[in-house]
Design a protein around this nucleic acid. Sequence first.
DNA 1: GTACACGGTTTTAGCGTTAAAACCAACCGT
DNA 2: ACGGTTGGTTTTAACGCTAAAACCGTGTAC
Lengths: 342, 342
Amino acid sequence: MPVNDQPVTLADVAAVANVSAQTVSNVLRRPERVLPKTRRKVEAAIEQLGYHPNHAARALRASTSHVIGLRIEPTSTEVVGSIHDRFLHALAEAGRPSGYHIQLFTADDAAAEAEAARTLIRAGAADGVVLYDVRAQDPRPGLLLAGRVPFVSFGRTVSGTGEYSWVDVDDETGVSDAVDHLVERGHRRIGYIGWPEDFSVGVRRARGWHDAMTRHGLPTDLDARAEDTMPAGSQAAGRLLDDPHPPTAIVAATDTIAVGIHHEATTRGLRPGADLAIVGFDDTPTALAFGLTSIGQPVTEAARAIMELLMDTVAKPDRHAVHGRLLAPRLVVRASSRSARP
Amino acid sequence: MPVNDQPVTLADVAAVANVSAQTVSNVLRRPERVLPKTRRKVEAAIEQLGYHPNHAARALRASTSHVIGLRIEPTSTEVVGSIHDRFLHALAEAGRPSGYHIQLFTADDAAAEAEAARTLIRAGAADGVVLYDVRAQDPRPGLLLAGRVPFVSFGRTVSGTGEYSWVDVDDETGVSDAVDHLVERGHRRIGYIGWPEDFSVGVRRARGWHDAMTRHGLPTDLDARAEDTMPAGSQAAGRLLDDPHPPTAIVAATDTIAVGIHHEATTRGLRPGADLAIVGFDDTPTALAFGLTSIGQPVTEAARAIMELLMDTVAKPDRHAVHGRLLAPRLVVRASSRSARP
DNA sequence: GTACACGGTTTTAGCGTTAAAACCAACCGT
DNA sequence: ACGGTTGGTTTTAACGCTAAAACCGTGTAC
């Protein structure tokens, strides 16, 4: 363990091992090019000196930073908890084996984000960026394509999905699975509460419910829309529960709405799980806290897929293959829907 | 807007502006050294070419990366939601004005984190690191000091606080404020549920309650301990509520425990806010969802203070001034404690 | 015995930037 | 008129690394 502070360089290692600097470099980058005997000698010197290759020098020489940029957004206080946090960790973890690091940046809006990403790339501070939570009308993919910024998106726009690589979660199947699960538990009157806007995620989740219900030969009249807040969720739940033939189960497009439903149910003296089954979306900590069944996004898998595609994209920035990957979500069953309908 | 892809360098700008590369560098780093006329000429060329200084080259030359490392931890599913997310954003934002970026890394335990941080520093990939959620017996500050890694911690160990710079939240005052607030609302029987272990944060929060109660001349018998999970919180709340002279308000050391209390209360037919006031800690989204009053940590302020101290530390790594900063938390009053005791 | 290929290593050069030194007017004092 | 400032600019060199070229001893072919 060396304690002196002047950084150890390739040349230092080379001097100790009695070889040239290039040989040390080869030991690290192309070990097969160097004689085992030499390699061991060099490795011993590296060990002895506690050498770590300098990132900046490597980046300068190879013009690749091994850094991926990601805009970090402030967590909205309206929304019940996001998967941003888990996604970040998964991404950092996914980059590790290939030596990629995640670097954060902030931006106030989509345009600023695209501009910041462009600067990051132009400055050689990052090799590519990840777009998080891309929605149907998102301007960011277009902006980044125009700015020639290598990127992969989590989520996708409604058009232009053939122009860039993306990873997305199959919301439709997720919600459909939730309906299957409820039908299996004996439910027939199954409602749905989703976003009012017609952006892709909302549309797809609604369609998942609609199609599954139709497939089971069940009516699709119990369909309500709400903003992504708890009060709106409660209100929408109220409307469904006021139906002359009310639901025994409700699927929500988000955990936030699900919590709103939960609240409305308890207010009305309905026991969640027993009198009204509830299923949320995103499997947030809050869903856990409320014992809510929720449709969880495969965050780790998504992060891994994104890093893979991004490495492709970064490797050949001009005419690289464009890929889309749709991942299946996973239903996490909890008390709010576990028991069979009495 | 140039569309060709070969990166623009200082030399390109210099050629266009008809000056030397060094002058361009001076325009960017020491504008006062260069004639206004020349400066404008150079600035025009920079603009025209869309030049962005190369990070790697700058880092190599100046041996400073303007990068701060931060270990990102997986969000525990046990805990109801953390402030990690908000802290990350605040930190990224706090670094922006001075051109510092946050780079994430992962590690499986404290020792691995320290080792990874050391490597990051030795490789020149980061100038310093931030330790998040440092507790009384935390081995990390010691390890980083030994490894000569510049760092600032959020939270502090019980000893050695004179050896490194830290920022922490004044838990004692936070809890004490919560008690004051409850007393003001007419409560007299105020209980406390905290962690069982004797680590600093737990001790300090418990002391805040104890001291405030004593100050108000109120008894401190309603003291229970629980693991940081909802079931444990419920159980502990049950014990307090079974008291022959039960509390009308309970302060919890975490939002997770507070949610447990909330659950236990509703199970017993007590209406939170009306029959039992509850105060949590950390002001997580879940607290918002439950309408729980909570003691919020000043995340933005903390992040700013940390960046400030870190820049000090990085600037003079050997004998820099060591500072500690204690920040006051802020009580966020919600339905669970708003109304006066009947 | 000379020519040639070959695996392993070293030498050379350059990535883009900036601190430090050198340079070069124009100006100043005597 | 001549050495000495001064302010602005250019030259030089180096940060640590690695691709590419050069080099060099050995083995092989004829």
